[in-house]
Simulated assay, not measured.
Amino acid sequence: MPQLVWLVTGCSSGFGEVFIRQILSRGDLAIATARRLDKIQHLQKLGAAILELDVTHSQEVINDTVAKAIAIYGRIDVVVNNAAHVTSGAWEDVECDQLVSQFDTNVFGVFKVTRAILPHFRERRSGVMVFISSLSGWHGHAFIGPYAGSKFALEGLVESLGRETEGFGIRTLLVEPGRFRTLLLSPSNLRVVPSKIPDYAEASKANADGLAKGDRTQPGDTEKAVKIILDLVRKEGCAQGKEVPFRFPLGRDAYETIGEKCKETLHLLEDWHDVITSTDFDSDSAQK
């Protein structure tokens, strides 16, 4: 495969930083972005181009930034929408503006970055769009409603987008990682809303303590995950000679939890088949 140019969001740590290092190690070109340039100076020293990009900025500002990114190497071949954070709290404790803030980064930010680069891909009739979703896009854990809601929304948006753009030679890859050892649960990325309601207090605190304990002790190896994603994009390594699927879970926990949900859904459809399919107009009624 020829040398690719990658644009990656959220590169100050975690998946984004690993993406840049591995992209460069394969001989491709990388444009790393983050809200603050001082957080990614070390990636510039490794050979990446760097740009300031806050996905919560306006569409016009993001359009300008993406235009600057395209101008660096004359094109972009792959965009990786990676920037995200987690808001945790009970429904009755989370304020609407906190929910909107969660969606601003995890959904609307992804929408704006992708919308900015789509004309470039469409005109070239090529390009790969990678979206880092989550196991939480399949399973809504208690007290993770804002984050799970944002990832469920992302899944629907991206599935629709993939169908809209596949005729233009644009590939879409929706990655659903389980728990990987990144800074996603660190104080800088995790926003916990403690419960003020006695009925939720104990369970809410236990959830917050569990998230804090999980920070940087997650079972998933980010290096291994990113290697697989690069293989899927480049169609080499584990993806050599295979048809790359649109949706790709990563991690043992993702495999097990998504598998259980699929089984439960199939069981529901079989058990309630006659009721679910009983809602069409009767033939005689329809004719009247």
Rank of each mutant, 00 (worst) to 15 (best):
M1R: 12
L7M: 13
G10M: 02
C11W: 14
G14I: 05
V18N: 12
I20P: 01
L24I: 04
D28R: 00
A30N: 08
E52W: 02
V55W: 04
E60T: 11
V61N: 09
V66C: 07
V79P: 05
V80M: 07
T87P: 01
Q98A: 02
F103Q: 00
N106I: 00
V107R: 08
L118T: 09
P119Y: 07
P119F: 06
H120S: 13
F121W: 07
R122K: 15
S126G: 10
S126K: 15
M129P: 11
V130S: 07
S134K: 01
L135T: 07
S136W: 08
G137L: 04
W138P: 13
H139C: 12
H139R: 15
G140A: 14
G145W: 05
P146D: 03
F152G: 12
L154Y: 08
E155S: 08
E155K: 14
L157R: 03
V158D: 03
S160A: 15
L161V: 02
T165V: 15
F168I: 06
I170M: 09
P177G: 07
F180I: 01
L183K: 15
S188M: 11
V192H: 04
S195D: 04
I197Q: 10
P198A: 11
P198S: 12
Y200E: 05
Y200D: 07
A201S: 09
E202S: 14
A203L: 12
N207S: 11
N207M: 15
T217K: 15
T222E: 10
T222P: 13
K224L: 13
L230Q: 03
R234H: 01
E236V: 10
P249M: 05
T257I: 13
E260F: 04
K263V: 05
D271L: 04
V275Y: 14
T277Q: 04
S278W: 02
S278A: 13
S283I: 14
S283R: 08
S285W: 15
